[in-house]
Design a protein around this nucleic acid. Sequence first.
DNA 1: GTTGAGCGTT
Length: 253
Amino acid sequence: MSHFGRSGPPDIKDTFSLLVLNITFRTTADDLFPLFDKYGKVVDIFIPRDRRTGESRGFAFVRYKYPEEAQKAVEKLDGRNVDGRDIMVQFAKYGPNAEPIKKGRIVEVFPKDKGKSRSRSPRPRYRDNYRDRDYRRRSRSRSRERYDRDRYRGRERDRHRSRSRSLSPDHYGSRGRGRYDDDRRRSRSRSFDSASPRRSPSPRRNSSPRRSSPSGDKSPEKRDHPQRSPSRSVSPRARRVNSRSPRHSSDED
DNA sequence: GTTGAGCGTT
């Protein structure tokens, strides 16, 4: 009852998987079980969760024993308000191995080796999917237009998207690096302040709103700028050519 | 205490 997905996939060879979307992050399988079990025989319920935080990802997989019951559950529970949010129930399109399935039915979990090796290249590319989906999990935070559940009808995913699958984790990585840099810089600034505590003992230093900015506190770029020009400008030869642009003998600067 | 596109594990 409560051990759904706790011990891995029990037997999904003859089960129909339903994908439950839009569920709350705190909704557990136990909460979905009584709901789905009322419309059919639920053999297993699995809710993918993040491996880093362990939080639910917001969707669950409900496996029914018969497709008719699953279909009924889809029509009945689809749009039902669960935990204060409307859930979306639909047949799973992809299997555990990232392979397309038919009407939520798992075709086959393990390729039976009847003495006929189909392919010698396993190509565990689904391994990369784990990493990708983990990263994009929080990357996508834009409110996309959720037209309807009907869009899945004409939506066909291509398996040839091995390399064409271009994700855009740029903002994520950029933000991460920027944050780290900022943090480091801020930490250094703080250390500097600690070294000189007699800077501003008065608690009323909030008078300047600009001071609130840790980045613009020291203005490193300003310090770099004047240091480069006048310092190198000290050159008899350079001065001879041009006292304004020592590094370049041109007036284009 | 938080967010919200989409497709799954021992």
